[in-house]
Computed example of a mutant assay.
Amino acid sequence: MTQQDFSTVLANVNGVHLTTSGAHFKQVGEGLPLLVVENQLGSAVIAIQGAHLLSFVPAGGQDLLWLSPNAIFEPAKAVRGGIPLCMPWFGGHPEGLPSHGFARSTDWTLQSARNLADGRTEIVLSLQDSEQTRAMWPYAFNFEFTIVVGTALDLSMTTQNLSDTSVPYTYAFHTYFAISDYTQVVVTGLADLNYIDTIGVERRLVQQGDVVFTGSTDRVYLDVPEVQTIVDGTRSIRIASSAHSAVVWNPGEHAKNIADIGSDAYRQFVCVERGDVFDNALTLAAGASHTATMTLSA
C-alpha cells in the first residue's frame, strides 16, 4: 500500500498487528482467518474466506496491492481490495444472484503450505461444490488455487467440471493495484485493442494509445496480449496472464457512493483484472478442466 502499512489497516479494524515469520494464521474482524506468509523474497497475506490475497510485498519493495482503508472484514462479505476471485461468473447475474459469483465470499480449504527449494513459499487452497453453491450454480466442481510467494507473485487457478454436462464459466482475478494517483498512471499493452465501455450505454470501441484515467472508467478489453504494465512515475508493475480479457476499472468520484471505498481513497488504486469474460467467456465440457495463470512483479 502507498499510504499505510497493511498491518496498520488491520489494527484499525480490531487491534491486530501482524509481526510474524514463516506462515501463520491470524484472525481479523468478525472471525475471518488470515494466513500470513513471509520469506526472504517477499510476503503476502491471504484471507481464507475467498482465498483472497490482501497484500503482496516483494522484499525491499512496496505493496503491489491496494486494500481499502474502509474495508469491511465480515463473514460472507467480500473484502474491498487485494485480489478478489470473481467466479464462476463475472459481473451481474441475470437471475439476481450475487454479483461476481460466490467464490470470493465462501470459505476455502487450505490444502498445503510448503517452502520451495528456491526460497519461495507455495500455498494451495481449494473449494468444492456444496448444497449452498449448487443452489446458485447447479454443477459439481473443484477449484484449486495455487499461490507462490517470492520476488514475484505467481497464481494458478484450476477449475474442474466434475458434472456430467457442459458448464458456462467466466472468471477474473479482480486485482486492485496500489498506485500514487490514478490520474498520473499509464497502462500499456492494450493499445489498438477492441474494448467494451460498460459505463452508461454499452459501446464497442478501439483503444487509441495507452490507457490513462481521467474519471470513472469501466472497460472490458478482449483478446489481449499476455502482458500489461502499470507505469506509475519511476515504478512499474508487470501483469502477465494466460487469460484473454483485461478489465480496467476505477469508479472515479462515484466512489463516494461505495461505502467501503470512500470519497478520496479511489485515487490510490486502479484495477487491471485478467480473466475470461464477455466475448471471451468459456464453456467447460463434462469432466474438463481449465487453468488460468497470472504473475505480478515490480
Rank of each mutant, 00 (worst) to 15 (best):
S130G: 14
A51T: 02
G31C: 15
G262W: 05
T2P: 14
S99H: 12
L18G: 06
M294Q: 14
T293V: 09
L153W: 07
D279S: 01
L193S: 07
A71I: 01
F278T: 04
S297T: 14
E95C: 08
D264G: 09
D260I: 00
L193H: 04
P138M: 01
V186F: 05
I83G: 13
V13N: 01
Q160V: 10
G287M: 13
V57E: 00
S216F: 11
Q40R: 08
T146C: 09
Y171P: 12
S68T: 10
Q160I: 03
V272T: 05
V247N: 00
I261Q: 14
H100C: 09
L85Y: 11
D260P: 01
G215R: 05
S289R: 10
G150T: 03
S105V: 13
S43P: 10
P225I: 11
G233F: 08
N115A: 15
H174K: 10
S130R: 03
R274M: 13
R134E: 06
G119L: 09
T158Y: 08
P138C: 05
V201M: 07
L53I: 15
H93Q: 09
P251N: 11
L10A: 06
T158K: 08
I239Y: 00
R120S: 09
R235K: 08
T121V: 03
D197Y: 01
R219G: 09
L155G: 00
V272H: 00
H290V: 08
D118M: 02
A140S: 11
I48C: 13
H100T: 06
T183W: 07
L54A: 01
V248Y: 00
H24P: 09
S180C: 10
Q40V: 06
I46W: 04
V45D: 10
L282T: 12
G209V: 04
V79I: 15
T165L: 13
P33S: 14
G22W: 02
G60H: 10
G252W: 11
H24I: 14
G189S: 11
T8I: 11
M294L: 15
N14R: 02
V149N: 09
R80D: 07
L125A: 04
S105E: 12
L127F: 03
F213Y: 12
T183L: 13
V148E: 02
T291Q: 13
D223V: 03
K77G: 05
S241A: 11
A23Q: 11
S112D: 15
D197A: 08
S245H: 01
G262L: 10
A76M: 13
V227S: 12
A292E: 05
I258K: 00
V272A: 04
A172F: 00
P138T: 02
L153F: 06
E226F: 03
Q4V: 12
W137M: 03
V37S: 10
I199D: 10
Q184Y: 10
A47C: 14
H290K: 09
A255R: 02
P88M: 09
G81S: 04
G275T: 11
D276R: 09
S263F: 10
L35N: 04
T20A: 10
F173R: 00
L284W: 07
P58F: 01
Y221R: 00
A51P: 00
